[in-house]
Amino acid sequence: MTPLRLHHDAWIVVCDAAKALFLRNAGDVRLPDLRVIERMDAADHRRTSEEGSDRPGLLQNRSAPTSAIEQTDWHRQEKDAFAAQVAGRLDLLHRQDRGSPIILVAPPRILGALRRALAPAASASVAGEIARDLTKHPVHEIEHLLTAE
């Protein structure tokens, strides 16, 4: 992982499918000092058997045999919905404080969902992306992992 330049007042969003940390650099590029501004948690996930119907349906075609319909991935939908909530909150924070660069840190699938859900203005301020899950690390370790050479 290449080290990032964390400018003063940069937003760093570290998230996965269940938790998001909104961090702010209170330091500067040489000596970053990440502070937790806000934390978001996703609603508890229910079991798949509690989520949907009993089994996937069938589609009757006119000129071909019957086709199976893929079962809905309810957990995937919940993850995408949480990523959209995180992006919405980040959009609001960005509107209140224009000009601050944004660093996104998330697993690849969540990172893609964040990218799709961000407003154009906030998306233009994204200065870096790291496709990695760092939500289980303490803040001082996140700081070190992002800036270590």
Rank of each mutant, 00 (worst) to 15 (best):
23 L>R: 00
112 G>H: 06
68 A>W: 11
35 R>F: 01
102 I>W: 01
101 P>K: 01
105 V>I: 12
86 V>P: 02
80 D>T: 08
72 T>F: 10
52 G>S: 12
65 P>I: 08
104 L>K: 00
49 S>K: 08
41 D>E: 14
40 M>G: 02
14 V>C: 04
110 I>N: 02
87 A>S: 08
52 G>E: 11
36 V>F: 00
29 V>E: 14
41 D>M: 06
73 D>L: 08
77 Q>W: 11
91 D>P: 09
88 G>A: 06
40 M>W: 06
54 D>K: 11
90 L>W: 13
112 G>R: 08
79 K>T: 05
64 A>K: 13
85 Q>L: 10
65 P>E: 14
39 R>Q: 14
68 A>Y: 09
27 G>N: 06
54 D>E: 14
89 R>M: 06
65 P>Y: 07
37 I>Q: 03
54 D>A: 11
33 D>I: 05
13 V>P: 02
64 A>G: 07
122 A>Y: 03
27 G>E: 09
95 R>D: 13
27 G>Q: 07
41 D>C: 05
93 L>F: 08
117 A>Y: 09
69 I>S: 04
82 F>N: 01
117 A>I: 08
29 V>Y: 06
108 P>E: 01
96 Q>P: 04
67 S>R: 14
97 D>C: 03
110 I>R: 01
81 A>K: 13
35 R>N: 07
107 P>A: 00
13 V>I: 15
87 A>K: 10
62 R>I: 04
111 L>C: 03
78 E>R: 15
33 D>F: 00
108 P>D: 01
110 I>S: 01
123 S>L: 12
111 L>D: 00
13 V>R: 00
24 R>E: 13
57 G>V: 12
61 N>Q: 15
99 G>V: 13
49 S>I: 13
117 A>R: 12
59 L>H: 15
44 D>Q: 10
88 G>P: 11
99 G>Q: 11
101 P>H: 01
84 A>W: 07
120 P>F: 02
79 K>A: 07
27 G>P: 12
25 N>T: 09
113 A>V: 07
77 Q>G: 02
89 R>Y: 10
22 F>L: 09
111 L>P: 03
94 H>E: 06
60 Q>H: 13
51 E>N: 04
30 R>E: 15
26 A>L: 07
85 Q>C: 05
107 P>T: 01
40 M>Q: 13
113 A>F: 08
77 Q>I: 09
76 R>S: 10
115 R>A: 06
95 R>N: 08
61 N>I: 05
24 R>M: 13
90 L>A: 08
54 D>L: 11
15 C>S: 05
30 R>P: 07
28 D>C: 03
63 S>Q: 14
24 R>W: 01
49 S>M: 05
93 L>G: 02
75 H>A: 13
28 D>F: 09
47 R>L: 04
51 E>A: 08
27 G>S: 04
71 Q>H: 14
36 V>L: 09
67 S>L: 15
118 L>V: 08
84 A>E: 14
60 Q>K: 14
22 F>T: 10
82 F>H: 01
72 T>L: 07
15 C>R: 00
118 L>D: 07
18 A>N: 10
83 A>I: 05
78 E>K: 13
25 N>G: 08
48 T>W: 11
31 L>S: 12
52 G>W: 03
118 L>I: 09
15 C>T: 15
73 D>A: 11
106 A>E: 00
23 L>Y: 00
50 E>C: 04
46 R>M: 05
16 D>A: 02
54 D>Q: 13
23 L>C: 04
59 L>A: 12
19 K>P: 00
64 A>E: 15
111 L>M: 12
